[in-house]
Amino acid sequence: MKPASRSSPSAGPTAPAPDRAAARPDPTTTTTLVRACSNHRRVRLGYRSEAGSQERVIE
């Protein structure tokens, strides 16, 4: 009698490692966003893509 084979679950594609040279979020901006969210306030955030050509706004 053969032992039951154990098949490992499919892990799927792996995520790339984070870029350690990437810019870090500004602590002041992060703190302001967290406070606004905790106070249930609306926030409008504008930023540029990594290429710098496109401005995005999140509300």
Rank of each mutant, 00 (worst) to 15 (best):
M1E: 11
K2D: 14
K2V: 00
A4D: 15
S7D: 06
S7L: 11
S7G: 02
S8R: 05
S8H: 05
S8P: 06
P9Y: 01
S10E: 13
A11F: 08
G12S: 14
G12T: 11
P13K: 12
T14D: 11
A15E: 12
P16Y: 07
P16A: 05
P16R: 06
A17V: 15
P18V: 02
P18C: 03
P18H: 01
D19S: 12
D19Y: 07
D19M: 00
D19A: 10
R20K: 10
R20N: 10
A21H: 13
A22P: 07
A22Y: 01
A22T: 02
A23E: 12
A23K: 14
A23M: 14
R24N: 07
D26Y: 06
D26F: 03
P27F: 03
T28H: 04
T29H: 03
T29N: 06
T29S: 06
T30G: 08
T31I: 09
T31N: 09
T32Q: 05
V34Q: 04
V34T: 11
R35E: 02
A36S: 03
C37K: 14
S38Y: 13
S38P: 06
R41M: 12
V43K: 06
R44D: 08
L45M: 03
L45K: 02
G46R: 08
G46C: 14
E50D: 03
A51Y: 02
G52H: 00
E55I: 13
R56E: 12
R56P: 06
R56C: 11
V57C: 04
V57K: 04
I58V: 10
I58S: 09
I58L: 15
E59T: 13
E59V: 14
